[in-house]
């Protein structure tokens, strides 16, 4: 075997034996590593608005019982993950009768399924809109499991994430670095086996519900 062959084989074996290092999207905001963001109303009003548009009625509602946290990986945004929970009891449509129906057995069945959960598994299609030492903004597609009415379904949701590093201005609201996640997506009731009262879905309640959410959090926790 020629010396050059040995050199090539050595180089090849070194290349194959070295671990494959995947480099994810970096968010260059003057900080590194994983940031554990906990949702808190001290940073901003955590709010989910939902809208059911049906031929006979348009129902607008909100929910305020939002909790959860997520890990924002500044060195690998794709690896961002977390869990956001909604207390079904806190859902409000402005009409007590309708709220009690919505939380009843034929609809969301709050006694059996008191929470709606979104488990974020990662981000894709990431676009860095802005990034500097004070923070930044990205747009991405979040992928995760949406759990409602005992049914788990993978849902992709477009998000805008703003990250603000701690400063004198942020300290007036709360400690830590801040994050705001905004998203809008649709949830089809039939996908989650929410059948409702016979004849109501499609006439008074929309077949899919529009969700519009703002999640505010801080690295300092609640």
């Amino acid at each position: 075997m020629k010396l050059s062959h040995i050199a090539w084989l050595t180089a090849l074996s070194v290349t194959l034996s070295s671990p494959l290092v995947y480099s994810g999207t970096q968010f260059k905001v003057g900080a590194q590593g994983k940031k554990n963001i906990t949702l808190t109303n001290k940073v901003g009003e955590n709010l989910i608005k939902f809208l059911s548009a049906a031929p006979l009625e348009e129902i607008k509602g909100t929910t305020s019982g939002i909790s959860g946290s997520f890990v924002l990986d500044l060195d690998n945004l794709e690896a961002t993950n977390g869990k956001i929970s909604i207390d079904v009891e806190s859902m409000n449509t402005g009409l007590n009768k309708r709220d009690s129906h919505m939380k009843g057995k034929e609809w969301l069945d709050v006694k059996k399924f008191p929470e709606i959960v979104y488990e974020i598994e990662g981000l894709s299609d990431i676009q860095i809109i802005r990034a500097d030492n004070n923070g930044g903004e990205i747009k991405a597609m979040a992928t995760g499991n949406f759990i409602m009415h005992g049914v788990t379904k993978q849902i992709k949701a477009p998000i805008t994430l703003k990250f603000v590093r701690e400063s004198d201005a942020t300290k007036k609201r709360a400690a830590g670095d801040f994050a705001l996640v905004q998203t809008s997506f649709k949830v089809a009731l039939k996908d989650f086996n929410v059948k409702g009262t016979a004849g109501i879905v499609g006439s008074k309640v929309g077949e899919s519900i529009d969700i519009d959410a703002n999640f505010y959090g801080s690295t300092a926790g609640q």
Partner: peptide, 20 residues
Amino acid sequence: NIYTKDKVQVSTKVKDEIFG
């Protein structure tokens, strides 16, 4: 309205100096 309501949604929007 289809049903009589006793509550109405009031939205207040405030300029956010931190997040824009």
